[in-house]
């Protein structure tokens, strides 16, 4: 793992002077952010401020947009993930992503979880891997008797946990979550938030959320993004979640989290 930061937290991944462009438009401007290992970091900010772009830049998911390019660095395990010799597919195995809308494959629950591992050449006990992943995603008890039913037969909240199990099954180090609960009801949302608290024992989590209460409830660290006058997203504040929601340092953070702007 990478070296600890000044206060002793190990850094899982670190953006340094990161800029992301779509064509000539700069969506992210000079973001430097150290994500702490085995902690939950929330990225919040008004719509269009570049939260999701920043998240996607952490596993080169933004490259799937043809005009996108990045400058600066994202350091993971001592190497810039944008270096030429980095294999983006392997990178995305180690830094997985869970999306806003649950997107299980139209296959069985078992196959949904086993799929990624199989592609990655997993040769071990697949039953055990599927069970462990479903357990870690807090879904096992609900699906253990119907592993061969379609993943699409599950409720929205269960589908999202299935997607988390699928992300876990390839043994990532970091899980990126892009509004993972915004399509879910409050109970299912709470289950995802509780699940995140268990997951952080084994994984580093970065979550983008529109829901300020969710960031306040569920994360250890919070980064606040905001657009500058050129509509480029900048990080205006980063700090421990409880400090940031109680006594934010930046006036704009205060205005945003208290509903005065945004």
């Amino acid at each position: 793992m990478s070296a600890p930061d000044a206060v002793g937290n190990e850094i899982a991944i670190q953006a340094q002077e990161l800029n992301v462009y779509y064509g000539s438009f700069r969506a992210i401007k000079d973001v430097s952010l150290a994500i702490k290992r085995h902690q939950i970091t929330a990225i919040i900010g008004p719509s269009g401020c570049g939260k999701s772009t920043l998240l996607r830049a952490l596993n080169r998911m933004n490259e799937l947009v043809p005009t996108a390019r990045a400058s600066g660095q994202v350091v993971f395990l001592g190497q810039n993930i944008y270096d030429r010799d980095i294999d983006p597919v392997e990178l995305r195995r180690r830094i997985g992503m869970v999306f806003q809308k649950p997107n299980p494959f139209p296959k069985s629950i078992f196959e949904n979880v086993a799929w990624g591992a199989r592609i990655n050449g997993f040769r071990g006990d697949m039953d055990a891997l599927v069970e462990q992943s479903l357990r870690r995603a807090a879904l096992w008890d609900e699906v253990k008797d119907k592993l061969h039913q379609s993943g699409l037969s599950l409720s929205g909240g269960q589908q999202q946990r299935l997607c988390i199990a699928r992300a876990i099954a390839v043994r990532p180090e970091i899980i990126l979550m892009d509004e993972p609960a915004s399509a879910l009801d409050p109970i299912a949302t709470l289950r995802i938030e509780e699940l995140m608290q268990h997951l952080k024992e084994n994984y580093t989590i970065v979550i983008v959320t529109h829901n300020m209460q969710q960031a306040a409830r569920a994360s250890d660290w919070t980064a606040v993004m905001m657009m500058d006058e050129d509509r480029a997203g900048q990080m205006i504040e980063f700090g421990e979640t409880q400090q940031l929601f109680m006594t934010p340092r930046d006036r704009r953070t205060e205005d945003y989290i208290t509903g005065r702007i945004g």
């Binding site: 300020m212 306040a216 929601f245 109680m246 006594t247 934010p248 953070t253 205060e254 989290i257 208290t258």
Partner: peptide, 9 residues
């Protein structure tokens, strides 16, 4: 109202 920051203070 879930007040935050200055409001909750």
């Amino acid at each position: 109202q879930s007040p935050m920051a200055g409001d909750v203070r």
